[in-house]
Amino acid sequence: MRFLINGQPVEVDVDMRTSLLDLLRDHLNLHGSKKGCNQGACGACTVLADGERILSCLALAVQYQGREITTIEGIAEDGQMHPLQRAFIEHDGFQCGYCTPGQICSAIGMAAEAKRGMPSHMTRDLGAEFITLDRHEVRERMSGNICRCGAYNGIVNAISEVFVEAE
């Protein structure tokens, strides 16, 4: 099967039953995407497919051939950490660090959704062309990413610094 992962073409022979997450972790040595439940409940496996956030544990690898997959290993820009990665460190947006890659990938995808005008339960104006994120929007939209250590305040602070315009 042929994949495009973090800008690199990859050819690999895997079982048809392999999830995108297991492809990354068990076959491509990309361990940044994490397995927390393997059933789409925790968000630790979140990656970007053509810029949209998906749960890679619920995605069959075979269906993602030719799509542009970006994992935590691929979000740095020119060898520099993504601003959100730096903000997570500064705002102490993690403790054990296991859900962190999923939180960061999810937040990047979430910001793009808001920009496209995709509403959430917290959105007042459903017809808006794009959504201005505030802390409520961020919390609602990030609720699929569980952090059991409870770094939520730091995570929201980090995301707000990078993606929320000054209120």
Binding site: E73, A76, M81, I89, E90, G97
Partner: peptide, 13 residues
């Protein structure tokens, strides 16, 4: 600030 921060936000820990 956490000294293991950079590794963890890169998913490299």
């Amino acid at each position: 600030t956490r000294i293991d921060g950079p590794l963890k936000v890169k998913g490299a820990a």
